[in-house]
Design a protein around this nucleic acid. Structure first.
Lengths: 303, 303
DNA sequence: TTAATAGTGTCTATAAGACATTATACA
DNA sequence: TGTATAATGTCTTATAGACACTATTAA
């Protein structure tokens, strides 16, 4: 007996097999302003991440990434945007997929597969909605630094290991985690393994997700326009550089920074005159920059 | 009433909500040898991808990526490896996650979320297992080229569009697809949109998945060691360059290619003498190269 | 001997880091 | 007027593409 495609679809039963649950987690980055050392300086910038205190089991009272289960009638991306909006009221200026976490035991409740998204929120759009009692959301200053790099030789295979320390502070609380990442072989197949070896206050495997998101963000900010999602429409180049340095957690030289972003910005006729020093020129993002990079074949910038 | 975490987990009911199905699709790349123009030349190299002819609805008789549903007791990665092994007998030399496709209507049967993986199979490990009648697997020569790039201005927002033509040939059959990728704004949020606007012989949205995997592969091969997963343990630099050029679909100059891979390879004392010209020296991959790149902070190479 | 490819040297253009120099406003 | 920061110039180093030159083998 041969079926047509229409007949087949008619008789298809999707409930035959047990299925994992599917959720999204969103790594939301923004920039915070700190103190200025003196009246002439710009305020110090800090990379920030958004966390939500869990009011329910499991991991009650721990801090977690915003997110939740995917509805049957919405895409993964729409689910991420909806959860972020519901839990915090934020509308992100960038939203892109990061990675899907599919280990069997990553959630103590049941089998949950979670697709993580990276969101960027402009410093002008950071305000969180008044908290209903389901969620207490808060921005944390985030640092992630390599503590140690090791090389082992096991059975003639080289294993590379690097340890990353995450620190998250919000003024009242300080969370931290230590991750052990290694490049390893399963048979002859090479892969990366991420383990949480110390965790203080973060729910589930969210330390892994945050560390992974941070690495990707630092990588992407170098060859995309994500940096401009963090700053206001008009910005000075020094301000832009401070934000860039806050993200990559490194100082760069002024001259080479300006050269590297020269074709991504357009100067305006406006200046910031207050400051006790030469006025800073204001710039805007130059969207035509993308045209150039597309023609050079740098296409896969966004996925 | 307050529950402990243990009590909460005891009472958790995972079957309350309807859930999407979860599957994996694997984009398997390898290298094929073509003809040589004369007795002195090395055979021409072609980038290849593995497809499976569907024997069942939907998309009966179309070609599809290997893959299938995820079991409850295996990780996404294990599911991808298992499906690949079951359907083709292949053990990949690299297996890494690409992207998770979560649109609501991407599969006509039901809501299916699919995580795509990229696999690389060495040219010495390409042999497919004798086909049971559930699957007919075949290597296809693959090209993917940008046909056109456009810029539109809509409501003051710039939209960039690029069209990519995929062509897949296996000697008897020729498949093709045309994709329209655009960088678009949903509100002020920027994202990428991929659409299939022409499709000849590929099942589901697999043209999108293949195009996306190809872009990622071409990007990653430049800063990782994936190139060495394609060639035998001992190789000549010309052979390596031909394989590289087959992947990126571009010629590069001999001198600069050699410079760029200099610290990734180690020379041996062996030469290939037959060929009617100066003997070629054989090289092997230098695994210590990774140590250098890790210390330079190029850490997120693998995820 | 010669054709064809392997392998190397070098010129140029480009990009990045380091650091010096000039410009400007406010305490 | 002094000082901290803005903005620019230039020196050096590293890298990539282009291309010429030398080396070697088999027909």
């Amino acid at each position: 007996m041969t079926q047509t495609e229409a007949e087949f679809l008619q008789s298809y039963d999707a409930s035959k097999y047990e299925k994992p649950s599917v959720s999204t987690d969103i790594v939301v980055f923004s920039i915070g302003k700190g103190k200025r050392d003196n009246y002439r300086q710009l305020p110090k910038r800090h990379l920030q991440i958004l966390l939500i205190r869990r009011k329910k089991h499991p991991y009650k009272d721990c801090w977690a990434l915003p997110g939740g289960f995917v509805n049957m009638d919405e895409s993964l991306r729409d689910a991420a945007a909806r959860e972020l909006s519901e839990e915090t009221g934020l509308e992100p200026d960038y939203l892109g997929q990061l990675y899907t976490w599919g280990e069997v035991d990553r959630d103590p409740r049941t089998r949950i597969i979670s697709t993580s998204y990276m969101a960027i929120v402009n410093e002008n759009n950071k305000k969180l909605k008044a908290g209903d009692d389901a969620a207490e959301a808060c921005w944390f200053d985030l640092t992630g630094r390599i503590e140690k790099v090791e090389t082992h030789e096991i059975d003639g295979q080289l294993e590379y290991v690097w340890y990353i320390r995450l620190t998250l502070k919000n003024g009242r609380e300080e969370l931290s985690a230590l991750l052990r990442n290694s490049r390893w072989f399963k048979g002859s197949t090479v892969a990366i393994k991420r383990e949480i070896i110390e965790n203080n206050g973060l729910a589930f495997d969210h330390a892994k997700i945050i560390e992974h998101g941070l690495e990707k963000f630092r990588h992407k900010i170098k060859y995309t326009d994500l940096l401009f999602k963090l700053v206001p429409e008009f910005f000075t180049l020094t301000e832009l550089q401070h934000v860039y340095e806050a993200v990559i957690d490194k100082k760069v030289s002024r001259a080479s920074f300006r050269r590297s972003i020269a074709d991504k910005v357009t100067e305006t006729e406006q200046y910031v005159t207050k400051g006790g020093h030469r006025p800073s020129q204001l710039y805007v993002f130059n969207p035509y920059w993308l045209e150039t990079s597309l023609q050079e074949g740098v296409v896969d910038l966004w996925s």
